[in-house]
């Protein structure tokens, strides 16, 4: 039976899709079969992030409307053989799709995969609710910014009315240098505010933005963070990437200074 995990945030642009894709790739590298479903109908992005936009034959709406089987719509990633993507429709009136429709698609994949990731749309409207009903666990993604944390808090209140087994927090785009300088809210403070277990911390990584233009996953700074995130999700541990480590001490002060000037 697969673990069905929804990636949500409330606020847009915090990195849900990037985290979904990279965590999926890391888990598949560790030998787990992972399917990522893009349920942001009409505003699909997962296909571009994963670099599979030219390989789409069928999408999730084709599956729901019976034009193909779920397995026919799945796209196998060329770099990670255990990783599959079910793309969303690029133009469709999403209101005609119900949570039950998507749940049926998820259920049809449950015995084939170890993990099913559901990439949730931003906001707390119908698209969000559709995504939540399919999952039994949720990962709430935040960045260390007030607007993102506030939205995540609202999302957590809504999630508490759903029947989810577990909720985890991922703090994305963390700048260790700013935290050491006291210019960014600390990860521990965010955990204290939101009261949910931390799954991982992902540092700000210039490679992610650069590589995403090429449809390539990963990043030199964040690679270790993805592995820790995957291990935490699978083993239930809470080993968090220390973004501040390299900015401490004399050498760290030098790094902070250089980063500030660039």
């Amino acid at each position: 039976m697969a673990r069905r995990i929804v990636f949500t945030s409330g606020k847009g642009g915090v990195g849900k899709t990037t985290i979904c894709a990279n965590l999926g790739a890391t888990l598949s590298n560790l030998g787990f079969r992972v399917a990522i479903l893009d349920v942001d109908i009409g505003l699909n992005n997962l296909d571009v992030v994963m670099g599979v936009e030219q390989r789409i034959v069928f999408d999730i709406v084709d599956v729901i409307e019976g034009r193909c089987r779920t397995t026919q719509a799945l796209i196998q990633d060329k770099r990670y053989e255990n990783l599959y993507i079910l793309p969303s429709a690029h133009s469709y009136r999403g209101e005609e799709i119900t949570g039950e429709d998507i749940k049926n698609v998820v259920c049809s994949l449950e015995n084939t995969f170890d993990y099913i990731f559901i990439d949730c749309p931003a906001g707390v409207e119908q698209g969000f609710k559709r995504a939540i009903v399919c999952a039994n666990e949720a990962v709430v993604v935040v960045t260390p910014h007030i607007s993102s944390i506030r939205d995540a808090d609202k999302v957590l209140s809504i999630l508490s009315s759903y029947n989810l087994n577990e909720k985890y927090l991922v703090v994305n785009r963390v700048r260790g240098d700013l935290m050491v300088n006291g210019e960014m809210i600390d990860v521990d403070e965010i955990i204290n505010f939101l009261h949910i277990p931390i799954l991982g911390v992902v540092p700000e990584d210039d490679d992610i933005s650069a590589l995403s233009s090429l449809g390539v996953l990963g990043g030199s700074v964040s690679n270790r963070a993805w592995v820790l995130l995957a291990e935490n999700l699978h083993n239930g541990t809470q080993k968090v990437f220390d973004c501040k480590q390299k900015y401490k001490g004399v050498l760290g002060a030098l790094r902070r200074n250089i980063k500030r000037r660039i």
Partner: peptide, 11 residues
């Protein structure tokens, strides 16, 4: 610090 001001606003 900026982080403390942010923390208080967030609270």
């Amino acid at each position: 610090t900026i982080a403390q001001i942010g923390k208080n606003r967030l609270k």
